[in-house]
Design a binder for these strands. Structure first.
Lengths: 144, 144
DNA sequence: TAAATTATTTAGGTTACTCTAACATAGGTG
DNA sequence: CACCTATGTTAGAGTAACCTAAATAATTTA
């Protein structure tokens, strides 16, 4: 993250833009503002910076687009998000809302290799001892 | 974290102070500065703020101590760190240096419940299918 | 199509964190 | 015990976030 000269917050903006576009097509400052829980002027500030850095195409009052670089970052972040959330819910049996919150933070820090190992581990356990996993998840559920 | 009115960075300062004291006894501004990779004036600023918030006992040129509240936070953070790092290395087979870095970040965000489930899951797997786990870790090692 | 509403942008300010340069203190040594 | 060096502190400034209030542009509607 730091190696790309992009902050956690900037990554969050890119991811938000990416997901909004995926669901709605054309998006507006207002949408990003709502999604991230900040006021419109903060969004405009962020768009200017992201545009200078080449992650977003943005002209005043014009439509908001991600550049190729911006899409790459957003997709990579979102992939990590999915993977983490899945691991937390399907392997550890964490409630979805909590899993989401944890994934939302960790996605910006987790090393590639850690994410990779989580995926491989999940696959391995699901293949090699599905019953044990099922039993663990069942016990977790019973506790709550 | 946010609920206690304490920032990620403040948590990092408390944890650093806690660990330095554990290893060296009396600590100095210089030690904290070195450990966190910031200049001494930044440490002094932080100490003032932490002192105002009641996490640190600090008077100019005097020794630096954690309050009860400060110790509680530092210990809780450090416990999460230990737990995460162990999970990453002993269950997922991630190299120790990477595991450390990931733990260092995630410790400030992870929900209590997620940490708890990681611990329980590790225990469960180690009890129920130790051989499968061993095999997984062996395969991971062979790849690198 | 002109007026009213909604959305966006600019201007200016706040907070948390960092830094460098300059100043102050404490402790060890001649 | 005075001086020198280490360490610590203050002052002042920069950056990345955020905000509110005011101004401008775009869109809807009467």
């Amino acid at each position: 993250m730091r190696s790309l000269g992009i902050s956690k917050r900037e990554e969050e903006y890119l991811e938000a833009i990416y997901l909004l576009q995926k669901n709605k097509g054309v998006i507006r400052v207002k949408d990003i503002s709502k999604k991230l829980g900040v006021r419109p002027p903060s969004v405009v500030d962020a768009l200017k910076k992201l545009s200078e850095k080449g992650f977003v195409e943005y002209e005043k009052y014009d439509r908001i687009l991600l550049t190729k670089k911006g899409i790459e970052i957003a997709e990579s972040t979102y992939q990590k998000h999915i993977l983490l959330a899945k691991f937390f819910t399907e392997i550890l049996g964490i409630p979805p809302d909590i899993a989401e919150e944890d994934a939302c933070q960790f996605e910006h820090y987790v090393h590639e290799i850690t994410a990779e190992k989580m995926k491989e581990f999940a696959q391995y356990i699901q293949d090699q001892c599905p019953y044990v996993l099922k039993q663990f998840l069942k016990e977790q559920k019973e506790k709550s």
